[in-house]
Design a protein around this nucleic acid. Structure first.
Length: 439
RNA sequence: GCGAUCGUAGCUCAGUUGGUUAGAGCGCCGGUUUGUGGUACCGGAGGUCGGGGGUUCGAGACCCCUCGAUCGCCCCA
């Protein structure tokens, strides 16, 4: 006997309630995305390494340490996508999607990052993604955020999640602010945490969201982006916030919210919760007007966001609606299989959820049907076959009758109504008085 | 890359300062009920104690290594 290979570290086999929550997140996203008329796109899972390396910038250790890269048989360096945006930007340029600008697109699927797994963090994980390409006006930011906001509400997890909003200004504002920050922190360099001293060289903006208490005082009186914003950048941010207010999207200003990569401009945002430990960001994004150029394309303004499906699913928890289960067909032995298949076919054609239980003892079959939450069980035994009938049992009240197969769907419809009434009553919503619960 | 905690039945866990045949609950299978679920009672199967090495008369417990998991740091596109 050989040993069973283990799953790769940081990958997950999702089943049961978690899988239901996962599917609920994706289905809700698909529904909401259509409301806002974002078009569905499908993207390759891997690209030439340079697609990600050039867009992210060679400097960071993201490229060297955090990507799944490998050489293919032609000695070409390929990389499993660690994000959607770079690949979408590449597609926009190579396929001439400029002709569709402004283009609203959405997709979802697996991404890969070579990281240490922890809560809500995996090496293969899944994201929802939405982008508006070729749109430089603040209204694009507003619509993108309005969609994100509605998505979280539709998922039922908006409580306890807040939208943190900031602006990084245009290119000049951003550079001026950055220079001022470096000067400010250089002055107190020795008193910063070791990590932040290193950030000062590599990525000074990141000092602003340091978790180390030693950095906090210096972060508090650090130069603010607002003092460096050009009038145009100020207007842009003002238009975004005014638009959000008009659209009924609640937001909080967070001047410490930054993006490490240089191609980000203007709006940066994160929907944050305190319910997921160290991984509190549930959905994040921003405007990346500088990205297309770094990939060799024409200057193209764009905004987008991504959200981790696993994290959303964790917040959704048990809230995902249970799958309906209408009919369990139970032949008492193999002699009833033909009748079972035939009845299943006609019931499913009417969109009833049907499962046939054809293994184990009768008792076992009934128990499994009950456990699975079937509304009614249809029993097919020797007597039924001889009479050309079936036995229909309501698994909620135990009522049972012998009927012709053609009459089953009517009984199922009744059971569905009764179920609906029970749920309505349970949820505390009063019935309109023209409904007679006993009908 | 760094740190902490953990790894005993399918699942959740117990296992006293190392001491004979390793336990419970749930689940699973069977029976009380030869064609009927949800309750109850009775019985049964199931474990190389993550893996390797060491200390000891004796290791699930102690030591080392290794693999894995969880949480955090770094990073976060």
């Amino acid at each position: 006997m050989s040993k069973t290979p283990q799953a790769i570290r940081g990958t997950q086999d999702i089943f049961g309630a978690e899988a239901e929550a996962f599917a609920f997140v994706v289905e809700t996203f698909e529904r909401v995305r259509k409301l806002y008329r974002f078009r569905r796109i499908e993207m390759p899972v891997f690209e030439r390494t340079e697609v990600f390396a050039r867009s992210i910038g060679e400097t960071t250790d993201i490229v060297s340490k955090e990507m799944y890269s490998f050489l293919d048989r032609g000695d070409e360096s390929l990389t499993l996508r660690p994000e959607f945006t770079a690949g979408i930007a590449r597609a926009y340029i190579t396929n001439g999607w400029q002709q569709h600008a402004p283009l609203k697109v959405a997709t979802h699927g697996p991404l890969f990052r070579y990281e240490r797994p922890q809560k809500g963090r995996y090496r293969q994980f899944h994201q929802l993604d939405a982008e508006i390409l070729g749109a430089g006006e603040p209204q694009a930011d507003v619509e993108l955020l309005a969609m994100a906001d509605q998505l979280l509400k539709e998922l039922g997890i908006a409580d306890g999640v807040t939208l943190n909003l900031n602006t990084l200004g245009d290119g000049d504002s951003r550079e001026a602010w950055r220079a001022a920050l470096v000067e400010h922190f250089r002055g107190v360099r020795g008193e910063l945490s070791e990590d932040s001293q290193e950030r000062l060289e590599k990525n000074p903006l990141r000092i602003l969201d340091s978790k180390d208490p030693r950095d906090r005082a210096f972060v508090a009186d650090a130069p603010k982006i607002d003092d460096f914003l050009s009038p145009q950048a100020q207007d842009f941010f003002g238009a975004v916030t005014a638009g959000l207010d008009a659209a009924g999207v609640a937001w909080e200003r967070n001047p410490a919210l930054v993006r490490g990569l240089d191609y980000y401009r203007h709006t940066a945002f994160e929907f944050v919760t305190d319910r997921l430990g160290a991984q509190g960001t549930v959905l994040g994004g921003g405007r990346y007007d500088g990205l297309m150029e770094s990939l060799g394309g024409p200057a193209t303004p764009a905004v987008g966001w991504a959200a981790g499906i696993e994290r959303l699913a964790m917040l959704v928890g048990e809230r995902a609606p249970q799958e309906r289960f209408d009919v369990a067909i139970i032949p008492m032995d193999d002699a009833g299989l033909a009748q079972a298949n035939s009845l299943a076919r006609s019931l499913r054609a009417e969109w009833n959820n049907v499962e046939i239980y054809a293994t184990g003892k009768l008792k076992k079959r009934m128990a499994r049907a009950n456990e699975a939450g079937a509304l009614v069980a249809v029993l097919i035994g020797e007597d039924e076959i001889a009479a050309g009938e079936v036995t229909v049992r309501d698994l909620h009240d135990g009522e049972q009758a012998r009927v012709a197969p053609a009459d089953v769907s009517g009984i199922v419809a009744k059971a569905q109504n009764a179920q609906w009434l029970r749920q309505t009553e349970h949820s505390g919503i009063g019935l309109p008085d023209w409904i007679d619960p006993d009908a």
